[in-house]
Nucleic acid binder design. Structure first.
Lengths: 259, 259
DNA sequence: ACTGCTTCTTTATGCCGTAAAGTATCGACC
DNA sequence: GGTCGATACTTTACGGCATAAAGAAGCAGT
């Protein structure tokens, strides 16, 4: 299972995403399930077990076999598309601009960051060929609605939207993966790091001399929140610091071009 | 197969990564393969088929069964770690600073971008618990060596390194996924996009009214390089534009804090 | 009561990573 | 030179995956 997205039959996928199916009178047994129920169950399973969830597991959670799902959904690819868009429905669709665009973008980014924390499997869904669901659109619309009023030209805006998006995804991915690794192996960050670096230093004793700049970079690290595990602290620091730099850059673009 | 990294036995993995194994006299048949040969073959297979390559496929390319590989490598996880670090050996380990840090960072980012284009499966390897191989270190060291001389404090530097890293990864991921999707389905970007948007507009005719800011954002798009496929053009535009904004932010940090 | 459609289960196919056991090949020692 | 034990590699097998194909059971319209 590598990367999913937009790989099903276009018409079927989009009809499902936009819930454009017409409820007709039908013969046969009453449906015991629904697309929504299946998508919800699948999200719950994926939240726990990551993108490597199985159709069997989703079926089991609903008291059915895996094959029963295929009555409602063409395949796992399409199900993932539906999960993706449905999860996005949790996110706000607009942000107040009273405190300026910078505060609003920061809130957007933080919301996304927390969202990815709740649903890490979303980071596994390809962005290249977007799912094109209504909620995905709404989320990007929300960011666009913050930035368009700054008056920057289209090309520049797209660069900014892309950069913010990539950055948040990347930052979130690191935490998500750290958590997943910890959960899968039952090995906390500290233990993992300790075991690895001990062996590493044993095999390569003068690591600090070989990579002096890295060594400098890692100096004077202080935990932001001592409650958080090791690697997550790094991630939070990187997220805040990186976002600041990025938004400074946007500010620069604003002052250099006429508002 | 979701995300691999640093999940094998620490000692064994790190010994393999740093090639710390001692070549002893051994009885038994001469080895017909080697770790290097296996890693090279695996990279070749992964370049073609993505992270969903199989041990069987790697073995076949070497004229062996899948199980033969397990003589040299503990498992697929460890093999991926080795592939990751070996691929990174392609990248430069230092950059000239004659034209200033900005030019150097741009070259670093562009090199990474192209590297991810050659080996898209690398983007699938988790960054959270790093592989800790020598070449991965060297690549980050190269970026650190560009930025440390700017004199910025450690915390700020880490934020910048993280942001640049996340950004390049995210941007590259989008192209990589677009290419992968195109290769897998045999459907070019244009066809895909055309089929999807046609259906979408049919089902949701006033899309532009529902998401007006998005519509504005997508205006006045002009291809940077008409030779490139649709989505890759977007990606190149986003990469250049985003990197510019990001580096403007770094510049701001530099002028505000004393050099 | 019959027909035709629908829901859901059963069974089967062909992938995957890898454990276990077997075979062939070599160096070291008697 | 014959034997022993370690090594390289293959065969077979297991449990997992998505899903194709076929069958059982339920219900509406005639």
């Amino acid at each position: 299972m590598v990367v999913y997205a937009g790989q099903g039959d276009p018409r079927r996928s989009i009809e499902l995403l936009w819930r454009a199916s017409v409820a007709e009178k039908r013969s046969g047994p009453k449906p015991g399930l629904s697309v929504d129920a299946i998508v919800d169950a699948a999200i719950a399973v994926a939240d726990e077990h990551g993108m490597a969830f199985s159709m069997r597991a989703v079926g089991e959670r609903l008291g059915r076999t895996a094959m029963a799902l295929y009555t409602y959904v063409p395949g796992k690819n399409e199900l993932v598309d539906l999960m993706y868009d449905r999860a996005m429905a949790e996110l706000p669709t607009s942000y107040e601009l009273d405190d300026g665009w910078r505060a609003a973008v920061t809130r957007w980014a933080t919301d996304m960051w927390e969202f990815y924390g709740r649903h890490p499997w979303v980071l596994q869904v390809s962005q290249a060929r977007p799912v094109l669901g209504p909620h995905e659109f709404a989320v990007i619309e929300a960011l666009a609605a913050i930035l368009v009023p700054t008056g920057l030209p289209g090309r520049e805006l797209r660069g900014i939207v892309g950069a913010v998006n990539y950055f948040v995804r990347g930052a979130a991915q690191t935490v998500a993966e750290a958590r997943a690794a910890g959960g899968a192996t039952g090995e906390a960050d500290e233990e993992w790091w300790y075991a690895r670096s001990a062996v590493l230093l044993e095999i390569e004793p003068d690591l600090a001399k070989k990579f002096p700049m890295l060594h400098l970079l890692e100096n004077d690290r202080e935990p932001i929140d001592p409650e958080l595990p090791y690697l997550e602290n790094d991630a939070v620091e990187n997220f805040r610091g990186g976002l600041k730099v990025l938004l400074d850059g946007v500010e620069g673009a604003l002052t250099s071009s006429p508002p």
